[in-house]
Computed example of a mutant assay.
Amino acid sequence: ELALVDKVLRDLFTPDIDRLIIDNPVEHAKMRDKLESTAPVLMGRMHLYTDRRPLFELHSVESEMEKALNRKVWLDSGGYLIIDRTEALWVIDVNTGKFIGKTSLADTILRTNLEACREICRQLRLRDMAGIIVIDFIDMDSADDQRKVLEFLEDELRRDRTRTHLVGMTELGLVQLTRKREGKDLDAVMREPCPVCSGRGRLLSAQTLAFRVRREILRLALDDHNEAILVRVHPHTAIELIGVEGEEVETLERDSGRTILIQVDQHLHPECHEVLGGPKNQLEARVTRLSQGHQVKVRLEEPFGPNIQSALAVVNGHLVEVLSGGDRLGKEVQVRMIRNTGAFCQAEIVR
């Protein structure tokens, strides 16, 4: 495989490039040697950067790279693109966004779609998108406008050094094209699948998970040997299970006829949980009790579910609602326990 310097000289440093700036003297010397024999006319466009300020910082390269990974790409007019990737293809959706135009709706749509063509082709090159690409332009009623957009897109695609093929527009108004794959795209190079959602980009909601846990609790409650039920869950699921002022878990205890103990684990995968049934004394022994009046210092990281006046804290595996803590998020505070039901705790801030 070619070294980075060779790839840049072969694929990127072409006569239409004004300057090539490099901050490594060794690589700069290598490039000069290669250019002397291959393209001496370009040698005057190559510059060695020697200042102390990082080159990427000087030209805002880091921020531009971050933008190149964003799902939403804004257009100058106020419209925007949404770029999504599936296992089989890339999908680009064009939206008018804030752009309302000054003439007719049809003209606004046409101008947005034409502007999107230019930006889409830029994104193809920037992200090195390859394979099948489907573009959902804003619907155009005029066949003439559709033709203008396709012709403009084809003109823009001709600037791409990577081979592309514009297939055309389907009856649903979707534009199909293919682009030759020449390596990993930017997303594959700079990112890896999320260890939490396994690359899906979505997680089951806390409400959905709480319903699952409730069903498991009710199933275990059918066994008379299960005097109590211990639940180990992520804090967000625990909030849904417990409910406002502990109402949900109290209802669940009445419906199941069992004592329910909730153990919170911040390090547990958000979609995972554990539900155990057994003798009450054995399960209670696995839970550290927080006595009323117990004081402890906690960091308030987020609101307690929908109740933005309260804050969430986890103390010794207990989910604690810190009353009036919503305006102290991000801070460490001393709290005093004022309620502990086994499944639900409340605390107040010690002033």
Results as ranks from 00 to 15, higher is better:
F99N: 09
V231D: 03
R163A: 14
Q263D: 12
I242E: 08
G277I: 02
V315R: 10
N281T: 13
T164M: 11
H234V: 02
T86S: 15
P15S: 09
G97P: 05
L35W: 03
I338M: 02
L203V: 05
S310R: 02
H269K: 09
R127N: 04
E115V: 00
V350H: 01
I229A: 12
E192C: 06
N24D: 15
D11N: 08
S77V: 00
I239F: 13
T162Y: 04
E247T: 10
D223S: 11
L222A: 12
D51K: 15
R299D: 00
V213H: 08
P25D: 12
V91A: 14
S60F: 01
E216F: 00
E248A: 15
G330Y: 08
L222T: 04
E151P: 01
C121V: 15
Y80F: 15
R219W: 02
F304G: 02
G199Y: 10
T112N: 08
M129Y: 09
V231P: 03
G317C: 07
E240L: 07
T208R: 14
G168E: 13
L114F: 00
D23K: 05
W90D: 09
A3D: 11
F344I: 00
P25L: 07
V350T: 10
T103H: 14
R289F: 08
S37M: 12
I109F: 00
D223V: 05
K67C: 11
K98N: 14
G183D: 09
R339Y: 12
V320E: 11
E321G: 02
V298T: 03
D136S: 06
P270V: 07
D11W: 02
I132W: 02
C121L: 06
M337E: 00
D139F: 03
T162S: 14
V41C: 07
P303D: 04
A228M: 07
L9P: 03
D155E: 09
H59L: 15
A106S: 15
E151Y: 00
I82M: 14
R254I: 13
G342K: 05
L186P: 06
D139P: 03
Q309C: 01
S291C: 08
S142N: 01
M46W: 04
D23N: 13
L55Y: 11
N307F: 09
R179H: 06
R200N: 10
L230D: 05
K30V: 07
P235C: 05
